[in-house]
Amino acid sequence: MIVCMTITEQHERTYGYADLPRLMALMTGDEKHSPAATSTLDVLWVLHDRVLRIGPERLEDPERDRFLLSKGHGPMAYYAVLAAKGFVPVDWLPGFGAYDSPLGHHPDRMLVPGVEIGSGSLGHGLPIGVGTALGLRAQGLHEPRVWVLIGDAELDEGSNHEAIAFAGPAGLERLHTVVIDNASASHARPGGIAARFEAAGWSTVTVDGRDHEALYAAFTAPHPGRPHAVVAQVEPKSE
């Protein structure tokens, strides 16, 4: 029997990485896209636990970092991390995908605290990230960092290549992207995923997407004057 905690009980305890599978298990129903969700789990956790300067108390803080989930299908891992970090009540998780639930099959920025963009068609997140970085620069906000999480299959979309080609020469140092590489792309790239970013002037690191220390080192690697891309390799997609 699944017992959901009240909001008060949720805020009285601290959730860690070991709790995430249980939190994800609270979300049931069709259209879960479980492999898509679990492929992002470790990246999402390391970012939210150790890297991103965000929190439930900073939702309107202009100096917060911005995290854009472009790989929005199968958001169970994202919702579990948001619940673990106090952005949303754990009570919401069992309602995932229900008609009256704020937790839809794609995150909605108007309904879910902590969500910066509403995702849908693949290929939109990185261009929005470029615009966000430019907007922050124009406002004189030089500390916030922009992080975009995309999937390797999204690189089949031309909009991403335009964003990659623009961001490098523009020197968008505050822009970061994490590519989840689970071998689901339809088209191969000569030299691999990182080579596409490097050709456009990005700093790149390719790491094991399940190794938390390697991910943290890659996320925090210096890249003066250049945007930064981390290719996180995980097990191939099985569905």
Rank of each mutant, 00 (worst) to 15 (best):
Y99H: 09
V205E: 13
G16M: 08
Y15G: 08
A133Y: 07
A36L: 10
L141Y: 11
P224H: 06
D108T: 03
D42S: 10
H176F: 12
L44R: 01
R13G: 13
F197K: 00
G29C: 11
V3E: 14
T8R: 15
V207Y: 01
V112C: 05
A18E: 15
G97I: 02
V3N: 09
E198D: 14
Q233E: 12
G104I: 04
P169W: 15
M24R: 04
E63C: 04
R210D: 09
Y79L: 04
R13M: 14
E143W: 08
A133W: 04
A185K: 13
R109E: 06
E60C: 00
R64A: 05
P35E: 12
E143D: 13
E162Y: 06
G118D: 12
V146K: 01
V46P: 01
R196E: 14
F166P: 00
D156K: 01
L126M: 00
E173Y: 12
P35V: 09
H142Y: 11
H33C: 13
E12D: 15
D49A: 15
P21F: 11
L126I: 02
H33E: 10
R64Y: 00
L149C: 09
A37Q: 09
G86M: 08
L111M: 13
L126S: 01
D91L: 13
E143V: 06
F166Y: 15
A84T: 02
S184V: 07
G140N: 08
Y15P: 04
M5K: 11
D108S: 13
G16C: 09
P222I: 13
P62G: 04
H124G: 08
W92D: 01
A153G: 13
P102K: 02
V115C: 12
G151N: 03
G97S: 03
L52T: 10
E63P: 00
D181R: 08
D65L: 02
V51H: 04
L93I: 06
A188G: 14
H223S: 15
G151T: 03
S238D: 12
A188N: 05
L111S: 11
V231F: 06
P75D: 09
Q139S: 14
V205G: 00
A77I: 01
D208I: 01
V205Q: 12
M27C: 02
L175P: 05
K85A: 10
G171P: 13
P190V: 10
L111I: 03
G120S: 12
S70V: 02
R137N: 11
G225F: 12
L111A: 14
P56L: 03
C4R: 10
A185H: 14
V90G: 08
L111H: 05
R145T: 06
D181S: 13
V112A: 08
F166W: 15
L134G: 04
P89S: 05
I7E: 15
H105W: 11
S34D: 15
Y99G: 00
V88A: 04
E198V: 09
H187S: 08
S186L: 15
A170S: 14
P227F: 12
M27T: 02
